[in-house]
Design a protein around this nucleic acid. Structure first.
Lengths: 205, 205
DNA sequence: GTCTATAACAGGATAGAC
DNA sequence: GTCTATCCTGTTATAGAC
């Protein structure tokens, strides 16, 4: 089980990596087992040998993407900084992550929309509730110092996420409507790494 | 061509209505011509008689949904009210519309993501550029009075749309994470009809 | 473990009767 | 216009050799 040679990645892992790519690009319904096999450089039959069915393979990919996204970001919230500091770091990290994975938000939201039970199942397989509880406690605690009631705290959190995620998720539409080239849009997103926390703090105060 | 009897809607229209429902629920790849035919109460062959192919039927549905959404909302921007007044009305109308069509944002964004050329084609078939130019002029003009440069204006517009759309689009995820029941979430969205314009004005000033 | 071959069926599309 | 029957391809999944 020596794995230090990355260029000789085993078949199971290559299949999984290929599946991540294909499912992300095409969605569950649009993805083809044939294409996953081709990208992994192996035969279709081997997919079923390792993962039994398309559905089971997809669920593993889905959980992996969702939990990867969440655990990546929870790092930004750890430590003993002030709420303001955490907000700036979180905004920078989150937009940075999304810039490297622009397809993920719509992919995840759409698959959840199509298969609502996915979210509950995924939550069971990863320790999602626990991680999210940490998020909530962390954020609510920070916001609690601002004398906001429960509903106001929820508005604040949703405001932050909305301002960070949507501009990346809707990039193609926004670029098309306002006729913006890629470089300009990239600058636009980079600016938001500080503009969003600024705006959020302004709203709360 | 008498059409005053709505209960005797002709086959072509019934097919189209059924197609809207199925495509919205399942997406292009997940939708089945068979199911559209069943919901329309006619046979599969008749789908092809009227619409030739699944792809052509889908394009008409897509354009209809996109242009319906846009033209509905442009009403809110007409008239000679102040920017502040328009902002409040627009926020109320937009969230209200989304509450009745919660599936639409993710459906549209995902189909555009899967088929980037859809947006350009749809723009050609409807008078999208013209409508959007009206939007832009209207909004930029209003924001222009606030002494904002181009990039700041773009941030403002994207902020508004993000704060309005995302909380509806991501409703299932947000409800699950924060353990919120439907009634509470509905109140939450209603509150945002005034909270969002308040916040936006606060950011701009 | 990995392959080839094929089963089994679903789904879009068309032919042709009425 | 509307239907039934059918074609034909693509797709998941499995059987079985190596």
């Amino acid at each position: 089980m020596v794995k230090d040679r990355k260029d000789v990645e085993n078949a199971e892992q290559r299949i999984f990596d290929a599946a991540v790519g294909v499912f992300l690009e095409k969605g569950y319904d649009g993805a083809r087992m044939q294409e996953i096999a081709e990208r992994a450089g192996i035969n279709k039959a081997l997919l079923h040998y390792y993962y039994r069915s398309k559905e089971r393979l997809f669920k593993q990919v889905f959980v992996s993407l969702l939990s990867g996204m969440i655990s990546n970001l929870s790092n930004a919230l750890e430590g003993s900084m002030s709420f303001e500091e955490k907000l700036y770091i979180f905004s920078r990290e989150y937009i940075g992550f999304l810039q490297h994975n622009p397809q993920m938000p719509i992919f995840l939201l759409n698959e959840i929309r199509l298969h609502p039970q996915l979210l509950a199942e995924a939550a069971r397989e990863m320790n999602l509730p626990q991680i999210l509880k940490m998020y909530r406690d962390e954020i609510f605690h920070a916001l609690g110092n601002k004398n906001l009631d429960d509903m106001q705290q929820l508005h604040s959190i949703v405001n932050i996420i909305s301002l960070l995620v949507f501009p990346v998720a809707a990039q193609p539409v926004i670029q098309m409507i306002f006729n913006i080239d890629n470089d300009t849009y990239s600058r636009f997103l980079n600016e938001r790494k500080t503009i969003v926390p600024n705006a959020v703090l302004q709203i709360i105060e």
